[in-house]
Write a protein that binds this DNA or RNA. Sequence first.
DNA 1: TCGATATTCAACCATTTGGTTGACGTTTGC
DNA 2: GCAAACGTCAACCAAATGGTTGAATATCGA
Lengths: 109, 109
Amino acid sequence: MSSPLDPVFAALADPTRRAILSMLLEDDMAVTDVAEPFEMSLAAISKHLGVLTAAGLISQEKRGRVKWCKLEPDALRGASVWMQSFGQFEAVNLDAFERFLAVELSDDS
Amino acid sequence: MSSPLDPVFAALADPTRRAILSMLLEDDMAVTDVAEPFEMSLAAISKHLGVLTAAGLISQEKRGRVKWCKLEPDALRGASVWMQSFGQFEAVNLDAFERFLAVELSDDS
DNA sequence: TCGATATTCAACCATTTGGTTGACGTTTGC
DNA sequence: GCAAACGTCAACCAAATGGTTGAATATCGA
């Protein structure tokens, strides 16, 4: 059916939204400042920010009349782990999978 | 603007397509066999496989009347690298991996 | 208080997406 | 040769997506 990964990957599928995430990597930003480099309306950017918020990739906090946008990189973790499982366990080499688990478990990190 | 990441993330946004990729992780499969566990038409699965092929995530080779589907995990590399730029994912987080598996396997249809 | 700034909302539009069904072309096995 | 199996194609549909504009709301600064 669906999973929490659905809205994350869907949000990442749009280049405008990926660009927004990259911008927020440097610092928190107000909605108007997020919109500034893009050649589209503020309302469109507001919608994109809504999609990113719904996916959990950013959070928004209103202070005064300004709404600040903040990256929430933890939301990428599930998606990242899902993808890595393909790179590392290609052709489901079960031996490799178990070696991977052993290494991960013995490494306190 | 667009980038080669667009179709990859868009393809991953659908749970049916992610389930198909997981199946192909175990072995190459014929289209009919890919479709078997899903409660939708063969034509719908054929379209999903087309989306995955367009994204480069699988390849398809016809032998006789059977078309074989093969995972192409390298296509995930670009997306993976993009996500690494957000840091914090250098090592696979096993807790997150297990949470992911629990969710992903429990709502499979 | 008033005007400007910040942001969202509502209505609308075109395009894409994910599904259906039925017809169609190939390949296979008897 | 012919029916069955494999898979796609074309047409259609409903819903979601990504954008627009204009009005609305809330806050700030003077």
